[in-house]
């Protein structure tokens, strides 16, 4: 299943998708995003945040209907949990860890001197117990494992977190800090694949209701190195990851705004999440890249939500 996504017919008709000026510059000029001086780290305007809020209420309607338990984790998690999660095996290039000064007065003087000289001052920083959350569901699994056996009917969660990935880019859709809303299902293989099927149907419907052209495609995670290519092929061959792609930066390279992942019993085995019958729990998640969805809407409908098509406004604002 390596089929290329079909052409975006709707997008081809939309004049806003291919303009000469980089989309990021447009967003800055229109005040939708506010530059920080570092690629991938931006302020968000009130209008941008409101669009995200409104979109989340649409997601939450489904989550509530499903009876998902809502949990919001902070953008950092225990370092030991990242070590155990295997994230550094697969994505060492994306991980961020929190370091802090832990020295004495002399060390402090050296630190200040190093900064004054413009020298490398990282040697005065030591790792704390924290790393930056790479995906909204990473803090969940140890929490679930600690609560005991997964009940026969399975577990459903509605998560949200700011996430960090070290991949500075001029593409506004590739931010270093971004928010991920996620629904996660933990249970039997049947329960979690059914959950994924449900969202595979809902996702495109949801985006099309906002007049966003989208196509579903098999995908892989950006595993590190040459070995990563093998892991990526494995993931694609087994169709463990699907993405819902929307043209934002360009029609040729559409942006993954939603992803649908079946982890098999990977996290169940890793964290010891066991079902009542003693079998390892399977898990699946659907992730919404909230900034990406907002950017797709701004790209498609213009920089001022007040002028967006009435039908789209009605879905978002009711």
């Amino acid at each position: 299943m390596n089929a290329r996504p079909p052409a975006f017919q709707a997008a081809a008709e939309a004049p806003s998708v291919s303009t000469a000026k980089p989309f990021l510059d447009e967003l800055f000029e229109d005040g939708v995003l506010i530059p920080s001086g570092v690629d991938g780290l931006y302020g968000r305007s009130g209008a941008f945040e409101e669009v995200i809020d409104r979109f989340e209420t649409l997601v939450e309607r489904f989550s509530k209907e499903d009876g998902a338990v809502k949990i919001h984790f902070p953008p950092a998690m225990p370092r030991v949990n990242m070590e155990k999660s295997g994230y550094l095996k697969s994505f060492p290039q994306l991980a961020g860890s929190v370091h802090s000064f832990m020295g004495n007065d002399m060390d402090h003087c050296r630190l200040i001197a190093a900064i004054a000289e413009g020298a490398d001052w990282s040697e005065f920083q030591k790792p704390t117990d924290l790393v930056l959350t790479p995906a909204a569901c990473y803090p969940l699994y140890p929490t679930v494992a600690a609560k005991g056996a997964v009940p026969a009917e399975g577990l459903l969660f509605d998560l949200k977190s700011y996430c960090f990935r070290h991949e500075p880019s001029k593409e506004p859709t590739r931010m270093q800090f971004f928010r991920m809303r996620e629904n996660v299902c933990i249970g039997t293989a049947e329960q979690v694949t059914e959950f994924r099927e449900r969202w595979l149907a809902r996702g495109p419907e949801l985006l099309r209701s906002l007049d966003l052209p989208c196509v579903l495609d098999v995908a892989n995670d950006p595993f590190f190195g040459r070995g990563g290519k093998l892991m990526a092929r494995n993931q694609r061959d087994q169709q463990l990851k699907f993405e819902l792609l929307v043209p934002v930066n360009s029609v040729e390279n559409p942006t993954a705004c939603l992803s649908f992942n079946y982890h098999q019993d990977h996290f169940g085995t890793l964290w010891g999440m066991t079902r009542e019958d003693g079998e390892k729990a399977h898990s699946a998640c659907v992730g919404f890249g909230l900034e990406r969805i907002a950017l797709a809407l701004f790209r498609q409908h213009g920089s001022d939500p007040a002028t967006w098509p009435e039908a789209v406004r009605k879905v978002l604002w009711g």
Partner: peptide, 11 residues
């Protein structure tokens, strides 16, 4: 054999 184990095997 996990996906990551297959990478270790490859190396």
């Amino acid at each position: 054999m996990t996906s990551f184990a297959s990478v270790q095997l490859m190396l």
